[in-house]
Amino acid sequence: MRFEDVELGDELPVEHPDTSLPKIEQWCEAADQHFARFVDHEAAKAEGLPGALVPGIMSQGFLLAMIHRWAPGCTVHKIDTVFRGPLVIETELTITGAVTDTDDETRMAEIDLTIATEEGRTGVIGTALVSFAG
């Protein structure tokens, strides 16, 4: 995808990231983040959480992967996410993106990002600044 192909209002294909326990465990191992609240529902509930949580940084990784799939070869210059509520592992999350601005001078696009839970609550909002390969 080239900058010229991108228009304000374009929406990235909706995705449902893999939040299965093996994937969460793989990320925790790679990130050296060994906390029971990410992999053990009962331990998380004992901390007052609704269940084991998708690590916030991992959820940011879902969004980056979505952007890279949408625009192969693109470069993410900035990603800024606000975690507004818990995302529970082994549930279906819906991640979306939309182009909200394009800059002809820098040839970058600004993208809105969201992650919503099964019940429709938005758990993460954010933005990313992206340039394109072409």
């Binding site: 995705e15 990231p17 893999d18 994937k23 969460i24 793989q26 990320w27 191992e29 790679a30 990130a31 991992m58 990784g61 879902f62 980056l64 992967a65 979505m66 890279h68 799939r69 192969p72 070869g73």
Partner: peptide, 11 residues
């Protein structure tokens, strides 16, 4: 690589 795979990266 493990991090990227876990996040669903395909690039």
């Amino acid at each position: 690589i493990a991090w990227a795979e876990a996040c669903g990266e395909t690039d």
